[in-house]
Structure formats: structure tokens, C-alpha cells
Nucleic acid binder design. Structure first.
Lengths: 195, 195
DNA sequence: GTCTATACGCCGATAGAC
DNA sequence: GTCTATCGGCGTATAGAC
């Protein structure tokens, strides 16, 4: 964990800057400054800006995968795992208020740029979708699992967008509470039998 | 309606291009090409790119205001007015699938650019919020009016983000249907009395 | 009002010394 | 592996002819 390679430092800094400033608005100069290396040295590690983007998306996919894995290992009950997902909004509230959702805003930007990495970025959303579906399925909501997963994803995207647009912490807190209540209510009603 | 001034043509073209390509990714050359004028001629009408953005946001605010006014004039029942809002997602489904929500994506971009026009852009969202609140209020949901308005706004933002990210028309259609059902269910239950 | 020509800076990318 | 120097291109913006 100690020695971090320059390559890793670049990816890490780019990850943060892409989130805060957007991909196209972040220049090599910005990243170079953050990592404290010269611009020229960049091209030893990456041949183009698109390759950095690609590496950043890979990192995010990997991190998301690890996070979901961790939730699955550390939390036995699927309903508590779903709660972890909702609480992620709370945990990252400061960043969400300032910069929105890292995944949603990146996808939105890449779509407008008509960038080929777009399909790669959306896979992060699919990771969440599949994982959420699995939890709902385990809770007995077999037929509705995917729709319920999409509902949670839709909500979190909408919440992140409006929270940052309005820069309203009260709104964000309230929406998180409502999501938790929605989940509670859903799971306390009897499960729909697979007829 | 016939004679459109060059200035109006520029704003109109910029409006569309900012939506499709994003603000910072749209160059003067792009707009000039769309309007069929030279780049230099631009600066007769606008002193800077920011001034064009400002004009575009003004246009969008004005258009939104007119649309909401129209709905209020043409539709007597507030519940049908709310339906008009939901059906706007359906009407613009092709564009939403390709470019997301014009307001949400612009706000997200301006936030990342730390652009001063950000607060101006978010006023469009506030226009919708206030109007929606008024409709819910007229339907008897006095205390919950703002929360219900925010729910509709949150949903539409989330739906637009995911629909474009996944480029999934089926998802979009289904979410619109669910929104309509949510509204139906809400309005057919007895209204909460103001105790 | 519209044009051409041009200034000037930033960005992505390359070459080559150390 | 890291540096400096530099290229070519595009982007915003200006000057000035018509």
C-alpha cells in the first residue's frame, strides 16, 4: 500500500479531477500539477488522453465491483445490503452536493461528446443494477427485482442531479430518508408469491 | 414569425447545439456553420461566448415560462396539467434518449465548469418546481405540495439520466407509465385534511 | 451587418537530452 | 523515468475592409 507508482498517481488524480471538473475540461496541465510531474512525462505512461480516461473508468469499475463485493461479504441480510446502497448517498453527501454523481455525470458528458468510452462508463451503472436486482431477488421479489433495482438507481440519479443543481443539503437528506422509508415499507409487506 | 433576425438565429442554433454537444464542447465555428455566417460576424451580436450562453438560458427560461402558462390556460383541471408535465417526457423521448434532459445536463455541466451562469440555469428547474407545487396545492395537497413537486422533478431527472445512459427506450416508456400510475393513485386517494 | 485576416493562448502530442 | 523544448491545431477574440 505504501509505494504508489506514478501511473497509479496519475489515474488517481485524473479520477478526482474528471469528477470535479469534467473530462474535457480537465487538461494534462491540471493533472500534471496535481501529481507534480511535467506534462511531457505523461506520455511515457499514457499515449493519449483517451487512454487515461479508459484507465479511470477501469479503476471505477473495479472499485465499484470491490465495494459491492464487500457489502455482500460484510452484510448477511440482503435488506441491510440495500440499505448500504442508500447510505452511500449519505456518506458522499458533500461531494454529491458539489459535483453530482460521479457515474451519472460522466455518462452524461461522454454521451454529449459522442465518446466511444461511453459504453464502458455505463457498465458501472449496470454493475449496480445487477447487484441490486440480486438483493431484491433474494428477498423474494423475483419478478419485480429488476424494476425495483431500476427504481433505486433512477431515484439516486435524480436525487444527485437535483441536490447538486440546487446545492441543497436539506433536500438531499430528506430524499435519502424517503428512500429508506420506501425500502422499509416494501420489505415489510408480504412478498408477492411466484404464481 | 417570418423574418428571424441573425441574433435570434444564433441563439436558436446555440440552444440546440449546447443541448446536443454540451456548452464547452460547442465552438463558435459549430454555431457559425449552423447559422451560415462567418465566425467574425459573431462578435457584432455577442461580445463573448458567455453572453451567448446567457441569451440561451434566457430563451429557455422564457420558453419554459410560456409552456407552463399555456398548460395553465389550456387545461382547466390541475391533475390533467400534471399529466402534461409527465407526457412531456414522452413527447421528447427521442431527444431524451440521445441527449438527456436539457436543463439537468446543462446545470450539471455548468456546476463542473464552476460557471457563474449556473444559478441562472437552475432557475428553470425552480420554474417547474413552483408550477408543480401550485398544481398539487390546488388539488388539496397543501402541506405536501412542495415535496410532491420535488418527487416529480427528481423522478424525471433520474429517468432522463438513465434513459440516455442506457439508451433504452423500453425503460423510458415504462418509467413514464409508472409516473402516471403514481399520479393516478395519489389523486384518487382522499386528500389529507389540513388539520 | 457581414466579411477576411489575423493575433494569441491553451491543449494534446512529439522529440530528444539526461 | 523524468525532464525541457517545441510543434501543429483549435478556440476565443479583435481589427479593419466592404
Amino acid at each position: 500500500m505504501a509505494a504508489t507508482s506514478t501511473r497509479e498517481k496519475i489515474i488517481c488524480a485524473a479520477d478526482l479531477l474528471f469528477y470535479q471538473q469534467g473530462f474535457s475540461h480537465t487538461s494534462f496541465a491540471d493533472i500534471a500539477k496535481a501529481v507534480n510531474i511535467s506534462r511531457g512525462n505523461f506520455y511515457y505512461h499514457f499515449k493519449s488522453k483517451d487512454q487515461i480516461l479508459s484507465a479511470v473508468i477501469s479503476l471505477r469499475r473495479s472499485n465499484t465491483h470491490l465495494l459491492l463485493k464487500k457489502w455482500e461479504l460484510c452484510t448477511a441480510q440482503p435488506n441491510l445490503r440495500l440499505l448500504s446502497f442508500i447510505q452511500l448517498l449519505q456518506l458522499n453527501q458533500d461531494n454529491i452536493l458539489r459535483y453530482g454523481c460521479p457515474v451519472g455525470t460522466l455518462c452524461a458528458e461522454l454521451i454529449k461528446l459522442d465518446h466511444p468510452a461511453n459504453s464502458d462508463a455505463r457498465m458501472i451503472l449496470t454493475l449496480y443494477r445487477t447487484w441490486l436486482r440480486r438483493q431484491f431477488s433474494a428477498l423474494g421479489h423475483k419478478t419485480q427485482a429488476d424494476n425495483l433495482a431500476l427504481h433505486l438507481l433512477t431515484q439516486s440519479q435524480g436525487i444527485a442531479t437535483l441536490a447538486s443543481a440546487f446545492n441543497d443539503r436539506t433536500y438531499l437528506s430528506r430524499q435519502i430518508l424517503l428512500l429508506q422509508q420506501w425500502l422499509d415499507k416494501l420489505l415489510n409487506q408480504e412478498t408477492i408469491p411466484v404464481s
